[in-house]
Amino acid sequence: MSQSVMFMIDGVQVEGRAGQSILEAAGEAGVYIPRLCYKEGLSPHGSCRVCTVMVNGRPMSACTSPISLGMIVENDSPRVAQLRRDLIEMLFVAGNHFCMFCEKSGDCELQALAYRFGITAPKYPYMFPKREVDASHPDIFIDRNRCILCGRCVRASKELDGKNVFQFVGRSAEKRIAVNGEALADTDAAVTDAAADACPVGAILKKGVGYVVPVGKREYDDKPIGSDIEAKRPAAGS
């Protein structure tokens, strides 16, 4: 049993274990910290910054910051919510997110976060960048229009599949996901790979299974993202 570490989130004492990140320890205590590039079972990346919290008054990514004794974390506050909201809005305008025909709609973590934050339209102008689609593989396709560069496919392929199918190339606005070959069909990517299930948005999807779940029964149709984590929170006073 690892050493117990007590810290505070939004004025509430939380007990975590030494070595845990703020995001993990908060999650076990039923405190949801929004996240996109973090996925359980993968090493944290700290790139999307949606899990930004104020740690002793300074912004830090909760997925990469370990907890420490007496740490004071601010998670559910207007200024933190505004930061996260702005990040989510920027992701929407930086790509081409056509939710109305996307197979991932209703199960998309980016969309679900926008719903949770009550975003009806981003305040930034849309960029409509030109992005490439790779439909060469028989079972999986990449639609970079929807890619948010979270790197979950990169880590899943490397850490869980042991394959290195995906990698980032380019810098800044030119940054994109590339594959280990001319096209996805030339790689050893398989539909059974963890990487094929790692994408939070509709950028890497399996072919032939789109729109299987009817509208109204999808993951985030009725419940906001994070509801499962918040359900673990002990009732007040108990």
């Binding site: 081409n96 339209a121 409509f128």
Partner: peptide
């Protein structure tokens, strides 16, 4: 009031924007 995805983000007609 902007009603619908086309008014809020361009929608299907905006597919030509790239």
């Amino acid at each position: 009031i902007s009603v619908g995805d086309c008014a809020t983000m361009g929608g299907i007609p905006a597919l030509r924007n790239t």
